[in-house]
Design a binder for these strands. Sequence first.
DNA 1: CTCCAGGACACTT
DNA 2: AAGTGTCATGGA
Length: 315
Amino acid sequence: MSIKNLYRLDANLEGLNIEGTLFSGQSFRWDNYDEEKNTFCGIIGDDLFIIQRVGRASCTIRTTKNPGQGETTKDFITYYFSLDIDNKRLFHPEFSEHYPHVWQLIQPYTFIKVLRQDAFEILISFMCAQGLGMRIIRKQVSELARLLGKKHTVTLNNKPFTYNSFPTPETLAAADPESLRFCTNNNCIRAKNIINAAKSVASGRLDLKNLCDPEMPFETARKQLCAQPGIGYKIADCILLFGLHRFSAFPIDTHVRQYLAAWFSIKESLQSLTQKNYLFLQKQVSSILNPELAGFAGHILFHCWRKEVKHLTSF
DNA sequence: CTCCAGGACACTT
DNA sequence: AAGTGTCATGGA
């Protein structure tokens, strides 16, 4: 295994709330880097990223990533952290008048970015997310990487630092369900579904690049995802939002249901979440949030609800 | 022991 | 098509 030297990139990431962004529960491969203060450590593809906050609006990034052809590392960061999206567009101007209490509460969270993450990694990660807590989801994802991902070692602070990439579709497709269940919270059905999805991607039957293409209608993309065993509307919407960069996708889970009822007085939100009700709630949301970026905005509400109201700390 | 955690699916009406 | 029950499993 090769040891690469990290190089330093100074980037002015104005308006990027790093802690909120990385711990908002959308990415399961970012964590605190305990050796340095205010520093976060993430794995994107084969590369390690160490991001340290410097002052209020700026941070230092160290990464193993080499600038690709025609793309600088800063370009990549801009894309990955969605710095091209102006968060002021997320909420209608009237929002603060209609929901002053919510508006006040979300102020510290309005800088949060939805990350444009790798489609396959997100596909599998959110398949691990049905009916489980955030902590266990993270555990599953890191176990998958540890068991089947490519191992890398780099020098960090003059010491070797080891991390694993997320497994490729081919590797996961070839995995054995009985051994994979140790990565899926001991759930054999989930292990099977994940292998099946990996096979679909590896064989080209499920073309993630195609799903990512804005030319493909949203509903068509969602339908293709839901055709996979183990993926319903909710997980499909998560994949669309975080992995396929469709910021209109608005996943509704137990927390979203709670805030839809508490903050926006949508009483149907407390009824059972049937498919019909799920779609009905999404329709209601489209009249509250900018439909084009509803999922992006929803993620800010999601994070704020969990932290400010539920006082949850695990992300 | 009970309840909850970023649901999905088969099985009735 | 729409509603209801069942499955699954570790952690608080």
